[in-house]
């Protein structure tokens, strides 16, 4: 026997859990932190749906998930989880890569923190979900040119924040 509320939450979870986890994991890099964000997001989602169901659930979930993940990254005071991960890793090269990834995530989160809500979700939708500008514009109720402007501004902020990584990778090619 289930309640309407339980059924509603379960249905939404079934539809979007992987997306929420994927966005959170990409920005956090830790399974448990990502699960915590999933839990937080769905609690908020359930509360939100008691008042008004968002017209674009996936857009709402993306925005809340990314905002929550950025908060978690900003709130990290110790690297205990990272140390645990490194302890489990096999060899210095793996440890170096883990440290680099953690630092890069922190920089990406810092850059995302400087963006507006809309810029942030446009960037995530484009970079990680590979949505088209038309899809993004429809999802967030803006014009395509506005979506493109948000994207360019967001990428510039990220680019400025990640400049210190420039000497670590290869020369980019034309997309």
């Amino acid at each position: 026997m289930t309640t309407p509320l339980a059924n509603f939450v379960a249905t939404r979870f079934e539809q979007h859990a992987q997306d929420v986890y994927g966005w959170a994991y990409r920005l956090l890099g830790r399974h448990h932190d990502a699960l915590d964000v999933v839990q937080d997001v769905f609690l908020r989602w359930s509360k939100q749906c008691e008042q008004e169901v968002p017209s674009v659930p996936r857009g709402w979930l993306r925005r809340v998930t990314v905002n929550r993940a950025v908060d978690v990254v900003r709130g990290r005071r110790s690297d205990r989880g990272l140390v645990d991960d490194i302890a489990e890793a096999d060899g210095a090269a793996v440890a170096d890569r883990a440290i680099d990834e953690e630092a890069l995530r922190a920089d990406v989160a810092a850059a995302l923190n400087r963006l507006t809500d809309v810029q942030r979700v446009v960037l995530i939708a484009k970079v990680y979900d590979e949505m088209t500008f038309a899809q993004i514009a429809a999802e967030h109720g803006v014009s395509m040119s506005t979506a493109k402007t948000h994207y360019l501004r967001a990428v510039r902020v990220v680019r400025d924040r990640l400049r210190r990584w420039d000497d670590r990778d290869t020369t980019p090619e034309i997309a």
């Binding site: 992987q18 890099g29 990220v158 990584w165």
Partner: peptide, 30 residues
């Protein structure tokens, strides 16, 4: 300008994503 922005996007994409993406597994686990 363009190359630096392509580089920024590539760095963002270099962050490993979730391994929990198998739809079949998801449907089964649901």
């Amino acid at each position: 300008e363009y190359q630096s922005m392509v580089g920024a996007v590539e760095k963002m994409r270099s962050l490993p994503g979730s391994s929990l993406v198998s739809e079949a597994v998801a449907r089964e686990a649901i």
